[in-house]
């Protein structure tokens, strides 16, 4: 991955079941295009989010973490 232009990051996306996960679903149903770099992890609520998850994601080698409620 020498050239930044070719770099395709891996992003762990922690999405709340009731909010952003629904939005992701709606985006799919509405045929909205978005970058394929995010890997969605569904959580029951943003309150389920623990700093452990974020650090574990970084440790396993993701380039970015996105938490959305």
């Amino acid at each position: 991955m020498s050239d930044n232009a070719e770099f395709s990051p891996r992003i762990a996306a922690f999405l709340c079941n009731w909010c952003s996960y629904g939005a992701a679903d709606l985006a799919g149903v509405s045929r909205l295009q978005y970058p394929p770099n995010i890997q969605v992890i569904r959580i029951p609520c943003t309150g389920r989010m623990s700093p452990k998850f974020i650090l574990a994601a970084f440790r396993k080698g993701v380039d970015g973490v996105w938490v959305s409620g």
Binding site: N4, F7, S8, P9, I11, A13, W18, C19, S20, Y21, G22, A23, A24, D25, L26, A27, V29, S30, L32, Q33, Y34, P35, N37, I38, I54, F58, D63, G64, V65, W66, V67, S68, G69
Partner: peptide, 30 residues
Amino acid sequence: RLHFSWISSAEAEKFQKTVAAVTEAVKALG
């Protein structure tokens, strides 16, 4: 590298825009 957002389940467009913004920001960092 670390992003937070509030998106309601009706805001598909905001979701799309946020994914793009997050990807862009992480890409810029390498």
